[in-house]
Simulated assay, not measured.
Amino acid sequence: MHNTLEFNTIDKVSANLKPVAIKLTKDIEQANDLMQETLIKAFVNREKFKEGTNLQAWLYTIMKNIFITNYQRVARRKTLLDQTDNQHILNTSDKTIENKAYSNFAMEEINAAIDKVKKIYRVPFKLYFKGFKYQEIAEALDIPIGTVKNRIHMARQMLKGSLKQYGYLDK
């Protein structure tokens, strides 16, 4: 082999990388595209390959870098920056369709579970859920802030038991 790689040499070794491309992309067509991009980039940059080093590892590195770059490009395209005071990054997808039937059903069960919680715990919990601060709840209910925190905690514990199937309130 000379100081530069020949296309035939790259092509022979690249066959071993096809399974890696499939594993990365999880799609045959995308894997073929990734393989093609890898081979083109390797051939164009063949003078950068150091003779005596592992050709397959070099090709794998090129493939991995192309995959990561493409993935980041797609992720950036699907990310919006919220321009409000509290900036949030929102991931979007053209393929997302919301199924309100499940969420409506879940909300009915959640509201029913909340309604079953004793009023002494339910009221501070609902106020907290609506966005009131502990201090505001304490003042509104004329109880100590520690009691407010305790009652909200107790309400959460009661709801955890009755809403396990949704995985809510585990955090």
Rank of each mutant, 00 (worst) to 15 (best):
E108G: 01
N91V: 14
I22G: 08
P144D: 05
K160Y: 07
A106M: 14
K78I: 00
N99H: 12
L55A: 04
F67T: 04
E51F: 12
P124D: 04
R122Y: 03
A106P: 01
A140N: 15
T9M: 05
T61S: 13
R73I: 03
R46V: 02
I22N: 11
N150W: 00
H2L: 13
I28T: 14
E29I: 07
A140L: 14
F125I: 01
Y60I: 00
V117F: 00
H153A: 12
K26H: 09
L163E: 02
K118I: 00
K116C: 10
N99A: 10
Y71E: 15
E136W: 00
L141H: 02
D115R: 10
I66Q: 03
I68R: 00
K164L: 13
K48Q: 08
A15E: 12
D11A: 10
E51Q: 15
F132Y: 11
K100V: 01
R73Q: 14
K78C: 00
D11C: 08
K118N: 11
I28V: 13
K133D: 01
K23G: 11
F129M: 15
N32F: 01
E98Q: 13
K133H: 03
M35Q: 11
T79M: 11
A155S: 05
L81R: 13
L163I: 04
K95P: 10
I114R: 00
R77I: 03
D27I: 02
K171A: 13
K133M: 04
I22H: 10
L169M: 09
A75N: 10
A106H: 04
D33A: 03
R156L: 05
F49G: 07
K95T: 15
G161T: 10
N150P: 00
I143H: 05
K149R: 07
P144V: 11
I152M: 03
L39C: 09
A31R: 06
Q157I: 15
E6L: 08
L80G: 08
D115A: 13
I114L: 03
Q83N: 11
D82L: 02
A31T: 01
S162Q: 08
D82Q: 12
T92K: 06
V117L: 02
L24W: 10
Q36F: 10
V44R: 15
A31M: 06
K95M: 15
D85P: 06
D85R: 12
Y60M: 04
S103T: 15
F67R: 02
V117T: 07
D170N: 15
K126P: 01
